[in-house]
């Protein structure tokens, strides 16, 4: 009985003593290593999408949350989140709500496998970034190379490669983060406000004859859209390419009517993809590449 009692007491003392020792050590350490952290940052972070897409221009959602708390970023700074996130941030901060301008990605090339001429074989790494070093397989040096760097870059699973070897944006899911535009080594993908309807779907700066030889749907710089546009100067020819000044160009289909290669198009985002010969939505036998969510 006595032995048992002493074992009890010693155990309790030993465990208690150890626990007490560590508790004191941690208490001192917590005072010494105390970090001031604004609980607001955590709250704002909860409002943001948390995908660290970088569209806002900050290093990640945490960085943006800190800027938002410090009032150095507007409440609608999160591009990917849209109006819901802007409202949530505004109410959490007690700030005035602001309109979120939705941006969408537009793929400005229609030169898929069927439309373009090929003059080279490429056996390297199947990424656009690598293929661009040697120029890819297509003759057109400005076209989509079709290896899907943009699709891999999309964190929101809103892009896929279609059977024609061109990337397609699912506009119901695109949040406008711009990751695809940054991933494209040829700057074919551009970010635009969603109310824009008129685009030149070509980046080819070669002369008309050469451009036409390389791709059936290239801009041959004939200048018909420039002449037809209701506002003079809203569409200009630069380096054998029609360039739209979106700020002054009227949003209608007048410039598109006489385009011989149908590379300037007017329509809804979905309609733009369907006019480019692609069905909208996931249907239609699109070969969706594996999303980046399952990758290492």
């Amino acid at each position: 009985m006595h032995l048992l009692g002493s074992a009890f007491v010693i155990s309790i003392l030993a465990m208690g003593g150890l626990g007490f020792g560590f508790a004191v050590m941690l208490a001192i350490a917590s005072k010494k290593f105390a970090v001031e952290e604004d609980p607001m940052v955590e709250k704002i972070l909860g409002c943001l999408p948390g995908t660290n897409c970088g569209a806002c221009g900050y290093a990640g959602c945490i960085a943006l949350a800190e800027e938002l708390v410090g009032k150095s970023a507007p409440v609608n700074a999160c591009v990917a989140g849209g109006q819901d996130v802007a409202d949530a941030v505004a109410s959490a901060l007690g700030a005035e709500r602001m309109e979120a301008k939705r941006m969408i990605a537009v793929v400005l090339c229609r030169g898929g496998e069927a439309e373009t001429a090929r003059g080279a074989a490429y056996r390297g790494d199947r990424t656009c970034a690598a293929a661009n070093i040697t120029g890819g397989e297509k003759n057109c040096a400005y076209s989509c190379m079709g290896y899907g760097d943009c699709v891999d870059a999309c964190k929101f699973e809103s892009m896929a490669m279609n059977s024609n070897g061109l990337p397609v944006v699912f506009y119901d899911r695109c949040v406008g983060c711009g990751a695809c535009a940054r991933a494209c080594p040829r700057d074919i993908i551009e970010m635009h406000p969603e109310d824009r309807r008129l685009f030149v779907f070509c980046k080819n700066k070669d002369r008309g004859a050469q451009a036409k030889k390389d791709c059936k749907v290239s801009c041959i710089a004939c200048g018909l859209c420039v002449k037809d546009c209701e506002v003079p100067g809203a569409i200009e020819l630069k380096d054998n390419l029609a360039v739209i000044n979106h700020d002054i160009c009227p949003q209608n289909d007048v410039p598109t009517r006489r385009c011989p290669t149908k590379c300037i198009l007017f329509g809804e985002p979905e309609k733009m993809t369907s006019e480019a010969g692609q069905p909208a939505g996931l249907a239609g036998g699109w070969q969706a590449r594996a999303s980046n969510s399952g990758r290492l």
């Binding site: 941690l26 350490a29 917590s30 290593f33 105390a34 970090v35």
Partner: peptide
Amino acid sequence: QLVEMFIRK
């Protein structure tokens, strides 16, 4: 716990 506090700091 100690290391965690230290790294955080």
